[in-house]
Amino acid sequence: MRFLCLPGGFGNAEVLKTQLAPFCDSLCSTGDASFFFTQGQNEVKIPPEHEGFFGPPPNFTFSAEDVPGSLRFNMADFPKRDTPEETMTRAFDLSGRTTFSNIREVVDRLVGILDKEGDIEGVIGYSEGAMIAGSLLWEEARRRKISGREPRLKCAIFFCGWPPIHLATGQQVIIDDIEDDEIFTVPTFHVVGAADPFLDASMALYNMCDPDSTELFDHGGGHIIPRGKRTVDDLTIMVRNMIVAVSA
């Protein structure tokens, strides 16, 4: 299976290739997967105090906030409440429900990649890339409804995910904000870290997926893509099983 790979905010395709290298190498070693890397289209400048943390320039984001910077939390500042949805609601309140008016442009470009490549059947998103991957799943569902275009994506893998941007409003949403038929029904695999300050964001995304077709893997670390051999081996076993199931 070939995967479209979307990096986190302020990263780029080359950084994601490095972050995912052990995972990709493990899957490729048995011929289970190949990968197509892309990146956001909005080049951004990293503040001097954070230079190097997101990898070497150029640095990009997919989503362009109408009020730049309003939804960028320091890890220590991210709120914590009793449920993931309560946490995200508080985060939305702090950001003023930021609107990402370019989301249509973003998903149009990614759908264009899917159509041009022709053989991509899965998507992998890390952090912001996971947020965009969820929005892309919605766009494929919308196009099937209005034009009959069959979705190309059969599954999604989310590393340290964030809730998606709704196509109608341009705002991030949680399960309380969507209709029953907007829950993600394609098989999804969520890789989270118990020590991730943004864990509630990942769990809010997980809660937007059909419980009968989703899996959760906790690597125990922070807001990172796991790279240790034992963890990667365990992770790829589960991903291989998902690939087999959706390819049957």
Rank of each mutant, 00 (worst) to 15 (best):
G40E: 06
I224F: 11
L136V: 09
S95R: 03
S29G: 14
E150W: 05
P57E: 08
L27E: 01
F54Q: 06
C5D: 03
D181W: 04
F3I: 00
M75V: 08
N207F: 10
E140H: 03
D119A: 10
M208V: 07
T89F: 04
D77Y: 13
A245P: 01
R240C: 05
D77S: 15
A91M: 10
E128V: 04
A130D: 04
G69C: 10
M208S: 11
G112K: 08
V106H: 03
M131R: 12
E179H: 13
R149G: 00
V67N: 15
M131I: 06
A130H: 04
L136E: 05
A76P: 06
D77L: 12
I237T: 12
L71A: 14
A76L: 13
L136H: 04
S135W: 00
I120A: 00
Y206E: 09
M1Q: 09
M88H: 01
R143H: 05
F189L: 09
T61K: 09
K116Q: 14
Q171A: 11
P187Q: 04
I237D: 13
D176V: 00
A245D: 15
Y126F: 15
G122V: 01
R2I: 00
G220H: 09
F10K: 08
V67L: 13
P164W: 04
A201W: 03
E65W: 05
V232F: 05
D115Y: 06
G134Q: 01
V123D: 03
G134N: 03
F184C: 08
E150I: 13
F10W: 15
R104L: 14
L137Q: 02
I46G: 03
A91W: 01
G69N: 10
A245N: 12
D108A: 10
R152D: 06
A133P: 03
D176I: 00
P22K: 04
R240Q: 11
R104M: 14
D32T: 02
V192P: 00
S101P: 12
R90F: 08
G40F: 07
E86T: 07
K80H: 13
L110Y: 06
G40C: 11
P48Y: 12
V192R: 02
F36L: 13
R230Y: 06
S247W: 04
I103V: 15
E65I: 05
T231F: 02
A133Y: 05
I124S: 02
E150Y: 06
A195K: 15
I124G: 00
D66R: 12
L4T: 03
G118P: 07
Y206G: 01
S34R: 10
R143Y: 06
R230I: 11
S34T: 12
G161D: 03
A204D: 03
N74G: 14
L27A: 05
G170S: 08
H223A: 02
Y126R: 02
I146A: 08
L94C: 09
P187E: 07
K45F: 09
A248W: 05
Y206D: 06
D82T: 09
V246T: 11
P79F: 03
N12R: 06
